[in-house]
Amino acid sequence: MQDRPANSIHFVAAFLTGGLLSLMVLFNGTLATYGSLFFASWVPHLTGTVAALLFLAVMRPKRAEAARPPLWVYLGGVSGAITVMLTSATLNSALALSGTIALGLAGQMIFSLIADMRGMFGLPQRMPVSRDFVAVALVIGGSLILIFFGGAP
């Protein structure tokens, strides 16, 4: 343990980050019950832009590189915005909420594994080991039980 304490910190941080996602679903989902689905995505992007500017002004993080990155790295927000539109379409189909979440988890996990194995988008390459697949099976299995039988997301 003492040789890599940072490793546990990353796991805990990622777990807590998932908790933030639950709060976002609650907040943005509440917006969607009063306004349109567009509104429920437009407002958090607007307030988020302002909040990020404030965070940047206070934190003043150092830029990692002086060189300008390629333009495509600025398009992550488009991918995120399209996600909202796709899920609003599938929510109203026979898939409903549980099917949308379950298939979304599958897509996210499979693509993440492929991206790691190939070192896509200039990120470090990582080969998963058999234990990683056991972990994926357990977490996704537990998630599917919660989605279909637990009355959650």
């Binding site: 990020a52 965070f55 940047l56 934190m59 993080p61 150092k62 830029r63 990692a64 590189e65 060189a67 300008r68 990155p69 495509w72 790295v73 600025y74 398009l75 992550g76 927000g77 991918s79 995120g80 399209i82 996600t83 796709l86 899920t87 379409a89 599938t90 898939l95 099917g99 949308t100 298939l103 979304g104 988890l105 599958a106 897509g107 996210q108 996990m109 499979i110 693509f111 993440s112 991206a115 896509m120 988008f121 200039g122 990120l123």
Partner: peptide, 28 residues
């Protein structure tokens, strides 16, 4: 479409992660 939505979540995180490599996590 639902699977694609999941793929796009991961894609977005990777692109933002790549931007953070050149700038910072908050700037991304």
């Amino acid at each position: 479409l639902a699977v694609l939505a999941g793929v796009l979540v991961s894609l977005s995180r990777q692109i933002n992660g790549r931007l953070a490599l050149s700038t910072s996590a908050m700037e991304s």
